[in-house]
Simulated assay, not measured.
Amino acid sequence: MVRFSNNVIGILNFITFVLSIPILGGGIWLANRASTDCEKFLEKPVIAIGVFLMVVSIAGLIGACCRVSWLLWVYLLAMFLLIVLLFCFTVFAFVVTNKGVGEVVSNRGYKEYRLGDYSNWLQKRVENTANWKRIRSCIIDAKVCKSLADESVNKAADAFYKENLSPIQSGCCKPPTSCGFTYVSPIMWNGTATDTSNTDCNSWNNTQSQLCYDCNSCKAGVLQNLKHDWRKVAAVNIVMLIFLVIVYSVGCCAFRNNRHDNSYGKGYP
């Protein structure tokens, strides 16, 4: 009779193995079909995650059900490293996203964002030319500003000012309010900048391929969006950590069972 802990590990790893197949397939599909920088950026991590889950789940499945102790040891080692990495990332995510908040603008429904309000580590990531080139390309490919323009094409200035824009829409699709430009449409603003101290005012361009994509406010909007996403991921990670620690504990019981059976050279007592 196979012991309970071995059964549990076997079932969990079978489920993980099944889940790894579509993940790996999705990564391979992206590798063959990717046409944008965003898609190309995602393909390698997706394939790596799929391969990792598949290999680890096979090791855990065989190790638990066939009582192969060295495979179960490999599985437990991988699980331990995953727990450590997940814990470190969760702590890191909370630390680097501790700073940064939107600035309320008078008579506006949206907030505006300043790059200097965020952690130095995050600032350096978006200020890196190569990094920002990829991020900029992703924003354009996602048609964030085009969608905003299409949705608000017939809106008057007062109606647009009441809009609850996303951080990226606020930072990348329009100039900062302090520039003093006159509203024509969500992605077209005319006039002369009144705030000469703000470099974003000079970076703004009505050309749809330019807009405020090279503005610090756009980079700040990306960081605000990243902060929001990382906080949600970190919260999910806490739940995942609890689950992984329980699975790891059950795996240790299964490993102990294997060693016990192998030591006595017979089946389960």
Rank of each mutant, 00 (worst) to 15 (best):
residue 4 F to W: 09
residue 9 I to L: 14
residue 187 I to W: 01
residue 262 N to C: 01
residue 223 L to A: 03
residue 135 I to D: 04
residue 125 R to D: 02
residue 227 K to D: 05
residue 241 L to G: 10
residue 102 G to Q: 10
residue 163 E to P: 00
residue 123 Q to I: 01
residue 253 C to S: 15
residue 74 V to F: 14
residue 180 G to A: 11
residue 68 V to Q: 06
residue 23 I to Q: 07
residue 230 W to S: 12
residue 12 L to C: 15
residue 215 C to R: 03
residue 225 N to W: 00
residue 100 G to W: 01
residue 20 S to D: 06
residue 247 V to E: 08
residue 32 N to P: 00
residue 11 I to Y: 10
residue 97 T to R: 01
residue 185 S to C: 08
residue 156 A to V: 06
residue 41 F to W: 09
residue 69 S to V: 03
residue 237 N to G: 09
residue 172 C to E: 12
residue 237 N to P: 00
residue 128 N to W: 04
residue 258 N to F: 02
residue 13 N to E: 09
residue 194 T to G: 03
residue 131 N to D: 02
residue 227 K to G: 12
residue 269 P to A: 06
residue 263 S to K: 14
residue 217 S to T: 13
residue 13 N to K: 08
residue 63 G to R: 05
residue 249 S to K: 04
residue 93 A to E: 04
residue 96 V to R: 03
residue 121 W to E: 12
residue 1 M to V: 10
residue 195 D to I: 11
residue 50 G to P: 06
residue 13 N to W: 11
residue 81 L to W: 07
residue 166 S to A: 13
residue 6 N to E: 01
residue 11 I to C: 07
residue 118 Y to P: 01
residue 67 R to S: 04
residue 115 L to Q: 02
residue 125 R to V: 04
residue 59 A to G: 02
residue 61 L to Y: 11
residue 158 D to H: 06
residue 211 L to H: 06
residue 94 F to P: 01
residue 161 Y to P: 00
residue 72 L to G: 07
residue 94 F to M: 11
residue 127 E to V: 04
residue 12 L to A: 14
residue 53 L to M: 15
residue 250 V to A: 08
residue 127 E to A: 03
residue 199 T to F: 06
residue 98 N to A: 06
residue 226 L to N: 00
residue 89 F to W: 08
residue 91 V to K: 05
residue 267 G to E: 01
residue 16 T to P: 00
residue 166 S to T: 15
residue 44 K to S: 12
residue 170 S to F: 02
residue 78 A to C: 15
residue 45 P to I: 03
residue 108 R to F: 09
residue 53 L to C: 13
residue 76 L to Y: 05
residue 233 V to T: 11
residue 133 K to L: 08
residue 268 Y to I: 11
residue 30 L to P: 02
residue 60 G to A: 12
residue 70 W to C: 15
residue 138 C to T: 14
residue 229 D to A: 15
residue 188 M to I: 13
residue 31 A to S: 12
residue 223 L to S: 02
residue 213 Y to L: 08
residue 130 A to M: 04
residue 96 V to K: 05
residue 73 W to M: 13
residue 15 I to N: 02
residue 41 F to E: 08
residue 139 I to R: 10
residue 257 N to F: 05
residue 261 D to A: 13
residue 31 A to T: 10
residue 61 L to C: 13
residue 106 S to C: 00
residue 159 A to M: 06
